[in-house]
Design a protein around this nucleic acid. Structure first.
Lengths: 212, 212
DNA sequence: CGGAATGTTGATATGCCTCAACTAAAGTGG
DNA sequence: CCACTTTAGTTGAGGCATATCAACATTCCG
């Protein structure tokens, strides 16, 4: 029985119905806790991990490492997210995961998760659904970076993050704390740092309140 | 027992090990066949389908429909792909699926698929894996459209398509038939039609052979 | 054979990246 | 605790890449 894993139950119940047995199987999963300092890598591109991580506090991000050493950030994740659940079924990581600001995660052995899936298929379906929502978010990122103006692009990202955080009860007073740097925003939104800054100012001058 | 569904078995076995029972469950799925004319929609954004489609011939594409009526193409799919398997677990389609050139699909009831998952969990894991590969492809599209030059971007898309087609035995003599228009390429790669054309010429003048 | 959709190419305008200089904040060692 | 170093943020100016527009060629389809 674990307090830490109840955050996963809560998250899955945002979209999936779980029985008491399902919940029991989840909170009974054995796990270890790992703390990450800002910018620390949790998994590297090319790794073949035997554990999956559940974010328990702070923020982590997934990114592609490009041949020139630069990064393309793909998504940001908050408490309750499992940013590398795909590694359960895909050997080699096509991307890396790092901490945005200090964060902590619970690590769960793949074999324990697979055993849980066997006992309670509905748990596997709930996590499958979670990965499908992830995929939808990636699709939205394609469209966002490809078809929208820089202003709409940034606004959309902020709204998405706030919406997701809010659904998980991670906001307070209409505010979400996200220690993302300008560089990281640029590498997520396909903009130069200069442009990120100017776009941020545009947004500041109309609606959204932004700090660091 | 179905000839049409063996294409799905073949596809899943590219990455997942299936037992004889698994294969039997798959080819025994009841299904109907639907033929699509070029550009016809298979599913629309906002739909809540009760069937999933397996591409059996031709090419289909997924796209976001934008408020201004334009499209953002997200991915292209060939025989063996299940472009809307996500609808099994997510009610409302966040994107549409249409035919690129004439195509045909096999439609399988969600309830039959879910029943098959119950009987053979490894079948569900194989299809789950398929959706995870999809997600990896979407991530690659983010990076492609966001961080690469227009030339590399287009070359990358062509290589991806050829690689996937080749793995499924859908190429002949180093050639892949894909009736994609310039407009569609542009709406996939975030380029204007003019630029698609010029980039295509650049590629023609060095390596790749391209026609329509 | 005619009309529509698709592809092709050139000229113009502009949005954005690059570069560079500077400021502010944060972390470090004396 | 303060000077120093480093990192992150801010702003301006120049130049290139690409979108947009327009005119024309070609293919497709009835």
């Amino acid at each position: 029985m674990s307090e830490v894993l109840s955050i996963l139950v809560r998250k899955l119940e945002e979209h999936s119905r779980l029985s008491a047995d399902d919940r029991n199987v989840i909170v009974s999963l054995s796990h270890s806790v790992r703390r990450l300092v800002s910018n620390e890598d949790l998994i590297r591109q090319g790794d073949d991990p035997s554990v999956s991580a559940l974010v328990t506090s702070g923020m982590v991000a997934r990114y592609h490492l490009l041949p020139n050493g630069k990064r393309q950030y793909l998504s940001f994740h908050l408490a309750g997210d499992m940013p590398d659940s795909q590694a359960l079924f895909i050997q080699e990581m096509d991307h890396a995961v790092c901490a945005i600001g200090p964060a902590s995660v619970a690590l769960i052995e793949h074999k324990d998760l697979l055993a849980a899936f066997k006992r309670r298929p509905s748990v596997s379906f709930a996590i499958w659904r979670e990965t499908l929502i992830d995929a939808a978010t990636f699709r939205e990122a394609i469209t966002n970076n490809s078809a929208r103006t820089r202003t709409a692009r940034m606004a959309h990202l902020f709204c998405e993050l706030y919406y997701r955080a809010n659904a998980s009860g991670l906001t307070a007073g209409g505010t979400l704390v996200a220690p993302v740097s300008l560089v990281q925003l640029g590498e997520r939104l396909a903009m130069s740092i200069a442009r990120v800054n100017r776009t941020l100012n545009e947004l500041r001058q109309s609606r959204a309140v932004n700090f660091h």
